[in-house]
Design a protein around this nucleic acid. Structure first.
Length: 665
RNA sequence: GGGGGUGUAGCUCAGCUGGUUAGAGCGCUGGCCUGUCACGCCAGAGGCCGCGGGUUCGAGUCCCGUCACUCCCGCCA
């Protein structure tokens, strides 16, 4: 719904009134959704108490428009209007010519009659995507000429006067239509791509979503505080983007990978509840769901809290965003209601093969190592792996029994060729003479009793299949997880039009790095270990849990957070276990450690990936579809030409000299 | 750094086991058309078949290399 404010003459202002946001469905119903929201009227505005001064307009004709291209209806018939917009589409009948004029708000059909002389000539010559201003009366269309697909389809404007405000040359990329185009072209001409309906709508959705996030956070007592962009490099984490210092030769700033330390310092500074839509910069390679170089997080931190309170705030945020925006065009989508399922990390790795499970997929992996070890089971291939510390994970494939042999062969090929695994064994369960029986290349190695027990543990029935992933624990779990996704997708078991959330909890604080042969932080180095300093001093580090958690939706990691380690001694010890000498930690995190020695509240928080949330709500698999000006996979901005070579004088000022990389042979 | 896919007209794509002059739709140019909304009809222009090398009587097609884009692995506290 939209509200109107009375206003003089030709200018009207309309804005979306839905709070906290407007759904896709609302956007569709109401293409006139103003990009800005007027401020509340102030008492000083005496003459027009309801109209903010900002919107008061002189009575003379506006130079560009009296209405937008999305708002004219039958009620305007008879009015003379002025419209400006882009020539979306032209239909030239020789003696009669139609133009669909487009702006942010919608489309209006213009009619040009040869009797109009000049205006008709302008229309004949104007090319699509030129910017046009017209004047003329609104006339009703006859019933059979009306276009019900258009909000303005009941009327058209009979053009009396037309001016080309900006002529467009031949287009490298058509705006009209839904055809797909090479991404390189789209990025080079991003401003044209953004004119197209789908992109335009997604960017508006993104804006509404961010407003809803802010509303939700403010409503829950959080305040937005800005943190620096030019900051110090941090030894942990991703590769930094460095910015040379002019005043300090040889020294560099780093762009923040996240405002992690600043938000913790903000808690020490007593601000209690912080949030920010924060730009984060990491010099790592891009993926479909990961932008090159930079991305945005809803960054959150709170004082005097435990894990549950962070969850509560985020679940409310999810309800205010996913709840409010879950409608997609005319398809209703359902978002899980709080509280979300909590899944310990270990359970997730077992049942789903990763720590970002897609709970729309009903398949659950089980450990079935025990069925491969008895003497009466003669399947040597797996026995050998198990003898060397391997395990077997079973992936049920409900209803796969009726699939052709090629279904099983394809999965096997995929496991071997794409995943570099030894393969995926399988057994198809069927009924023979009233008893459960196994079919497939390896079924013959299992006595009936073992098959029955295995089927029971895996929850598979007659007509189902069970796949096996056998390897050391980590690769077996990983392969099982990938197979789970693949099988669920192929068998069309994935729920549609739902958002399934969960919290992954109880992460181990460390993990063993096989290649480097050392202990690394597994999650976030600033997390409080369960049991604190004592746990670090008395337990095997690999057994210590961290108070850290991820928020997951439909297989995407939306965000990650922790209750922080705000005890200096515990922090030094935690870093020491991960191979950082206390004096290094003191130096690298001097600001924060000192802060913790001067009165730090217990605190914790989380950061959510804004871009990924928009991806989910806009139903897109590629993050660049919801980003206005993204870089390509090689981290180049094709529109602005970044990165670019600096001028010599710039380098001199920064005390830098370019050393080209060695030539490749 | 590694693996996969793609690359033919401005754009989307077809082009078979190698074989005459490389096609279609959209767009563009010109002409016709007074109710279209993907308007219609007629005509035309437009191609280093990503680039380099090779095999062959002959390469868009086969082989080798290379570049670009993209997806994935590594990486992303």
């Amino acid at each position: 719904m939209a509200r109107w404010r009375p206003c003089r003459d030709h200018v009207r202002v309309r804005w979306a009134a839905g709070s906290p946001g407007t759904s896709w469905a609302d956007l569709d119903k109401s293409p006139v959704t103003c990009a800005f929201r007027p401020p509340e009227p102030g008492p000083a505005d005496a003459e027009h108490p309801k109209i903010p001064a900002f919107f008061r307009v002189e009575t003379k004709m506006h130079p560009y428009r009296s209405h937008t291209c999305g708002e004219l209806t039958k009620t305007h018939v008879g009015e003379t209007v002025r419209l400006s917009g882009w020539v979306h589409r032209k239909r030239d009948h020789g003696g009669l010519l139609f133009i669909d004029l487009r702006d942010h708000y919608g489309l209006t059909q213009l009619v040009f009659d040869p009797d109009m002389g000049e205006a008709f000539k302008v229309a004949e010559q104007v090319r699509t995507e030129s910017v046009l201003r017209i004047d003329g009366p609104v006339v009703a269309r006859t019933e059979d000429a009306a276009n019900t697909n258009l909000s303005t389809g009941a009327i058209e404007v009979q053009v009396k006067d037309a001016t080309v405000l900006s002529a467009a040359q031949e287009l490298p990329l058509p705006v009209f239509g839904e055809q797909e185009y090479p991404e390189e072209t789209r990025l080079r001409y991003r401003f044209l791509d953004l004119r197209r309906e789908g992109m335009h709508k997604r960017i508006v959705l993104r804006s509404h979503l961010i407003r809803a996030m802010r509303n939700s956070m403010e409503g829950q007592g959080f305040l937005d505080y800005q943190t620096p962009i030019l900051t110090a490099s941090s030894p942990e984490g991703a590769r930094d983007f460095l910015v040379p210092s002019r005043l300090h030769p040889g020294k560099f700033y780093a762009l923040p990978q996240a405002p992690q330390q600043f938000k913790q310092l903000t808690m020490v500074a007593g601000f209690d509840r912080y949030y920010q839509i924060a730009a984060c910069f990491r010099d790592e390679d891009a993926r479909a769901d990961r932008s090159a170089g930079e991305f945005y997080q809803l960054d959150v931190e709170m004082s005097f809290v435990e894990q549950e309170e962070v969850f509560n705030v985020m679940e409310q945020l999810a309800a205010d965003t996913f709840g409010a925006f879950s409608g997609k065009m005319d398809i209703p989508r359902v978002a899980d209601k709080p509280p979300f399922v909590r899944i310990p990390y270990k359970t997730s790795m077992l049942k789903y093969g990763n720590d970002k499970p897609d709970l729309r997929n009903p398949i659950e992996i089980v450990d079935i190592t025990e069925f491969f070890t008895p003497d009466e089971v003669s399947f040597k291939a797996f026995k050998n792996v198990i003898a060397q510390g391997g395990i077997v994970r079973g992936i049920p494939a409900p209803g796969a029994g009726s699939r052709p042999r090629s279904f099983f062969d394809k999965l096997n090929d995929w496991a071997r060729k794409d995943q570099g695994a030894a393969g995926l064994g399988y057994i198809i369960f069927e009924e023979v003479d009233g008893a459960l029986s196994g079919k497939g290349p390896i079924a013959k190695f299992f006595p009936a009793a073992v098959l029955t027990a295995m089927a029971e543990k895996a929850g598979v029935k007659v007509g189902d299949a069970l796949f096996f992933a056998c390897d050391k624990e980590a690769p077996a779990a990983n392969l099982a997880g990938l197979a789970r996704t693949r099988i669920g997708t192929t068998l069309e078991l994935i729920e549609k039009d739902v958002f399934r959330f969960c919290w992954i909890t109880d992460y181990p604080i460390y993990e063993f790095n096989e290649t480097e042969g050392r202990i690394d932080f597994s999650h976030n180095p600033f997390s409080m270990p369960v049991g604190g300093l004592e746990a670090l001093e008395t337990q095997d580090p690999l057994d210590v849990m961290g108070q850290q958690y991820d928020l997951v939706c439909n297989g995407y990691e939306l965000g990650s957070g922790a209750i922080r380690n705000a005890d200096p001694d515990c922090m030094l010890k935690a870093f020491e276990i991960a191979g950082h000498a206390p004096e290094d930690t003191e130096k690298n995190f001097a600001g924060m450690i000192n802060a913790f020695r001067l009165g730090a509240p217990p605190h914790g928080g989380i950061a959510l990936g804004v871009d990924r949330i928009v991806m989910l709500l806009a139903d897109q698999a590629n993050i660049r579809e919801v980003t206005m000006y993204p870089m390509n996979q090689q981290a180049e901005d094709l529109l602005m030409g970044a990165p670019s070579q600096p001028a010599n004088h710039q380098l001199r000022e920064l005390h830098l000299r370019h050393i080209p990389p060695p030539e490749k042979k």
